[in-house]
Design a protein around this nucleic acid. Sequence first.
RNA 1: GGUGAGGUGGGUGAGUGGCUUAAACCAACGGUUUGCUAAAUCGUCGUACUCUGAAAGGGGUACCGCGGGUUCGAAUCCCGCCCUCACCGCCA
Length: 424
Amino acid sequence: MLQPGFIEQNKERVLNGLTVRNFKETHLIDEILDLDRKRKGIQVKTDDIQADINRSSKEIGALFQQGKKDEAGEMRAKVADWKTELKTLQEEADDVRKKLEKALLDVPNIPHPSVPPGNTDEDNEVYQAWEGDMPRLYDGSKPHWELAEKYDIFDLKLGVKLTGAGFPVYKGRGARLQRALINFFLDEAEKAGYLEYIPPHMVNEDSARATGQLPDKEGQMYHVTIDDLYLIPTAEVPITNVYRNVILDEKDFPIKMTGYTPCFRREAGSYGKDVRGLNRVHQFDKVEIVRLEHPEKSYAALDEMLKHVGGLLDKLGLPYRILRLCGGDLGFTAALTFDFEVYSAAQEKWLEVSSVSNFENFQSNRLKLRYRDAENKKHLAHTLNGSALALPRIMASIIENFQTPEGIVIPDVLRSYTGFDIIN
RNA sequence: GGUGAGGUGGGUGAGUGGCUUAAACCAACGGUUUGCUAAAUCGUCGUACUCUGAAAGGGGUACCGCGGGUUCGAAUCCCGCCCUCACCGCCA
């Protein structure tokens, strides 16, 4: 969420940023400025009246003690008038505040200057292309969903029986491979200095709002209405909210956190598109990395996170490229996002396996996550996060890229975790 | 789920309608002093919004779990909710 003061001082920059995003509701900006001005005006009035009431109340007390009942009575009448006036003003203030809040919630983050304009994923810029060899498959190689049946490593039909479409069931060596990947990713994150959390898999409305899933992604989360909780669409939500309403010391940076969780996404409206096999599912596993940073260091941190994620893919031996998302493809809360795509040889497609973003202070503003500088002044911190990594498409590309006539060969780095070196 | 007790600043904890501008102590920070660790002593020590000022600062308002209400006046009284603790019930 942007701050009204920031919008006021950077109106042109905000409007230009929204254009890069292809965001049409620019009238909201003037509305926000107007509502904020109104809010201040009303507050000055109500504060003055309240000050008068407070002062008079004390006098009334004193007058009663002195036995001056008549004077006290007069003053009481005056206070009653002020209170009526105050009530009207407060109703107005509540109304303005609600409208302002709503307008602010509807405005997305301003893109970083390096974000290219564009509307769809076709306008994303290749930031780092793959320069190594592409995997060569033997004749008769298959996409992962066929291999899954052949080796009995995961089962989508069984998921339909237990739950519904998009809930894969991993079995045997498939389950073991999944667990190996999770442990490998967590160990690498810990080596890189991230503190591991196992957070709740459901969050309350406050948490979902603070990281920006509400109201923007309302329909994409599973909502447990009986207790008014949301199944997390990513570990970003609970892990970033660890620091909701916290004032850090400048010396506390950087704060690096990681966590493995299942992620739940309704994926409403994406039927029929790239949904085969593990390409798009409602429940998947992911290891997330989250950082809280000093504003001056957040872009250096973003680079470091890109290196971390790239390192994981290098170690697994998967070909990948990095995209810089264009304005139209950028998430609501992000200022700059890099997507990692892994090449899936049998499908002959690039599959998104990670999204690494800097939110600058957009989330912090809702989180009320601040830090004190050397002069004890408070500022909003920057937040960042990235998938390191999302499992299903990694699983899919390992299965496809490393298939041989003898079976699926497990990457070296995973063998100490799986305890086997081939699935056959 | 039932019954009871409770929720006050970074922590402990006082405060049952106006003498609270939330005491006191601890922690933290800054100064002074003593040839070390440390002690003594003085001072500072919440958050948000807002007005004023170039700034340093100063003024106002709100906030004692959250939301309402009573009252000229609420941390204090009333109602609803949330949470914590204890015991009971149920249970992986």
